[in-house]
Amino acid sequence: MSTFVLVPGACHGAWCFDDLVTALRGHGHRALACTLTGVGERAHLAHGGVNLDTHIADMCGVVAAIPDDELILVGHSYGGMVITAVADRMPGRVDAMVYLDALVPRDGESCWDLVNDEERQWYLGVDDTGYGVPPLPFFDDRASAHPLPSLLQRVTLAGDPGVRRRDFVYALRWPGESPLRRSYERVRANAAWRVRELDGAHNLMRDNPDDLVRILLDAAAH
């Protein structure tokens, strides 16, 4: 049995993984989806000081409370920033990592650094608070504003976290250039990664749920 910890992308809460969590539990695994501080049902905690470090601390706390079994971190979109840092801060604790159309940062990089100009323009369209990035029109109705500082802060990574396996899942049906393309190009020829392309939009949990279940189960297999 593995334990999957799923981290959503910008503006989304744990609910975006509801179907995946149910399917993974149906296969006998533990699965826990989390909502980051200041987002989704935790939007009431949003303030100008919520940043990437806040979200990393959120998930380090979650991981620390999980029994010491085979742990698989799953990050969607912005969630890739978070899971990368969590594995780095807890070396030897994470068995595998799955990036669902997600950012793959290196030391000193921010979300802003990795995405394209169109995505950056979205980040800059903050709401009246001055720090909330509003959800895009095609997001789920439950989506909330996302704290801008978390998209601008550079991640600090120390070295090799000792992860057995890394998977990257790339969504092919973006309406224009994918803001995740740089991350995809970074890993697709790397023998240390398993890279898959799916004919779905960025919300792969909605468009390709069966494919994702198979990929996650495969990541848990030795």
Rank of each mutant, 00 (worst) to 15 (best):
P147K: 14
R186E: 08
E118N: 00
D107P: 09
P175F: 09
V133P: 00
S178G: 04
E118F: 00
L151F: 03
L124R: 11
W112F: 13
P105A: 14
L136I: 14
E109Q: 11
G108N: 09
P137R: 06
R142M: 13
V115R: 03
P137C: 07
V126E: 09
Y123M: 12
P161H: 04
G132K: 03
L148M: 10
Y184D: 04
Y131R: 04
H146A: 14
R186V: 01
F139W: 10
N190Q: 12
R181N: 01
G108E: 10
A158Q: 10
V155K: 06
V169N: 11
A158I: 10
D127T: 01
P175G: 07
A171E: 13
T129P: 15
P175D: 09
A171S: 15
V169A: 08
P175V: 15
R142F: 06
Q153N: 14
S110N: 02
V187M: 01
L180D: 03
A145Q: 10
Y123I: 01
E177L: 10
R186S: 08
V115T: 11
R106A: 14
D140K: 07
R173L: 15
G176K: 06
S110M: 12
L136C: 05
L124Q: 05
R106I: 15
G125C: 04
R164W: 00
E185P: 02
D141R: 14
E118R: 01
F138C: 12
L157I: 05
R166Y: 01
P134A: 07
H146E: 15
P149F: 07
A189E: 12
R142I: 08
N190P: 09
R164M: 07
F168A: 01
Q121M: 09
Y170V: 12
F168T: 08
C111R: 00
L157A: 06
A145G: 10
L103T: 12
Y170R: 11
S110C: 09
G159R: 05
D141A: 14
G176P: 08
L157F: 09
R186M: 06
E109S: 12
W174Y: 13
V126P: 01
V187L: 00
P134E: 07
A158W: 03
P137H: 02
A143I: 02
V104G: 04
D113V: 01
A191E: 15
L124E: 07
P179Y: 06
D141Y: 13
A189S: 15
Y123V: 06
E119H: 01
L172K: 15
V104A: 03
P134G: 10
G176F: 02
P179V: 04
G159F: 13
S178M: 06
S144G: 12
G159E: 13
D127G: 05
V155Q: 04
N116S: 13
P149M: 13
G162D: 03
G108L: 09
P149Y: 14
D160P: 10
P161M: 02
R188M: 03
L157T: 03
R188E: 10
P161L: 06
D167N: 00
R166K: 02
Y123H: 10
P137V: 07
N190F: 00
W112P: 01
D128A: 14
W112V: 03
W122G: 02
Y184A: 12
